[in-house]
Design a protein around this nucleic acid. Structure first.
Lengths: 243, 243
DNA sequence: CTTCAACTACGGGTTTTCCCCAATAGCTCC
DNA sequence: GGAGCTATTGGGGAAAACCCGTAGTTGAAG
């Protein structure tokens, strides 16, 4: 692992909270992963639960990247589709040969992308989901061998990348979002847990009118029309947790 | 890895769909993991985010297991709590020393459980959450060394165990996401977008009473007390998007 | 053919939320 | 010391949500 960035140092791999501002150049990071493990291409796709947008970092050629984006393939890409429904890594050879598969993979082949690969899904606490994909042009035999060797490491890489991306994303959001006061967060958190205003008033030993004020204030700060919307936004922004 | 069950065979680790009915004796599997990696104890806890149910397989003594269950510690266990909110593994030394922490860890100490450990969170596509915890009584120095050595493998073990558990029939019922109907999702989605019941009725060209029925039904399926809670859960499970 | 889930709709009544209003106290920052 | 923010409490009233029912249609599954 000596050639990889410091985030790969064993002691730091899971110790992300203490990391300094490590390379936010995720693409560069993926190149490192690709070279280290002898892969053809490495790609990460993440979905922002806030706006449903799909974004990614890839080592693919710009041509394919462009084509993929232009065609809106992220909407039908069977690798993403399947990864969304799986816990364990998905080998592409398992994918159903439906029209979507053919559309994407035939095009990919024309752009010189290997059809052999797999996707490792990762999930976070806010409904966020990511997928780390790798491709290889090795023979089936060698590919299976390579998979066996790198699968364990890639599982960690996937978690790591996703964690970094989500952190940087929610961090930037945090800077843009009005900071909710402690009380507002508390009230919103309890609301997310299914409590009524009166319940929360009892829990916090304050008046139900005060609870209402905090909720109203939270709604305003989140530009939410209803409390339900405010709860949804707060959760997706990582301000509170689903109860 | 030669001493571990076949599920550990490299080629099969991620290739779960082709696995026969492998050992459903998860506890036995955890013992293997413990011995293989030189740990004191290994525990897996699965959580149903919808109804809050927690179940687990552990290598702990029966005494501690009993006590833990009787005390309802799964409701306040800070390791589970933190793991629910994290993507990356959580070292227990990072946990806040609050009352819950003290309650659980002081008792654990009395039962001879090591206070040093970490929990690796895993998530599945249905909002299901699992956590693989390990403990060790090594010196801080050796513990850090051990962590570094096993973290990558344990990440895979965690995914694997969680996948096995979710796939197993007995528990899939407990965790299976209630399938919300199309209408329920639509109504919930609009609610998340800040629309009132009447708004949604107009948008979907149906009666406001019908909208209410769908919302009620969605709440029931999500075991939510309020619509706000239902929206939060649906978002965190990726069923709908925040509006 | 029966059963069941989903979608649709309505009534009556209770509870809760939401909105606009006003007011006091503490705290920090300039 | 005042300006501004936060936390707190309150009233009154309108609006919305929620609960407990009933009930018809459709389509799929058994």
């Amino acid at each position: 692992m000596e050639n990889l960035p410091s985030v790969f140092a064993k002691n730091d791999l899971y110790d992300l909270e203490s990391l300094p501002e490590v390379s936010k150049d995720f693409t560069h990071f993926l190149y490192k992963v690709r070279d280290k493990f002898g892969l053809d291409d490495v790609a990460y796709a993440g979905m922002n639960p806030i706006n449903g947008a799909v974004f990614g970092y890839v080592t693919y050629d710009n041509d394919w990247k462009q084509h993929y984006t232009n065609q809106g393939y992220h909407r039908i890409d069977p690798t993403l589709h399947k990864a969304r429904r799986s816990i364990a890594p998905v080998d592409w050879s398992r994918l159903e040969r439906d029209e979507h598969f053919l559309a994407v993979f035939n095009d990919a082949r024309d752009f010189g992308i290997q059809a052999q690969g797999m996707t490792i899904p990762v999930r976070g606490p806010y409904g966020d989901i990511g997928g780390l994909s790798i491709t290889s042009g090795l023979s089936v035999r060698d590919w299976n061998k390579l998979k066996a060797e790198v699968i364990v490491n890639l599982q960690s890489v996937a978690v790591h990348v996703h964690d970094m991306v989500i952190r940087s994303d929610s961090l930037s959001n945090l800077l843009r979002t009005p900071t909710l006061s402690q009380r507002e967060l508390e009230v919103l958190q309890w609301t997310s847990a299914g409590k009524s205003q009166q319940d929360i008033a009892d829990i916090l030993s304050i008046s139900n009118r005060t609870v209402e004020v905090h909720l109203r204030s939270a709604r305003h700060k989140l530009y939410a029309l209803t409390t339900a919307q405010a709860v949804g936004r707060a959760i997706s922004m990582g301000l509170i947790y689903p109860g």
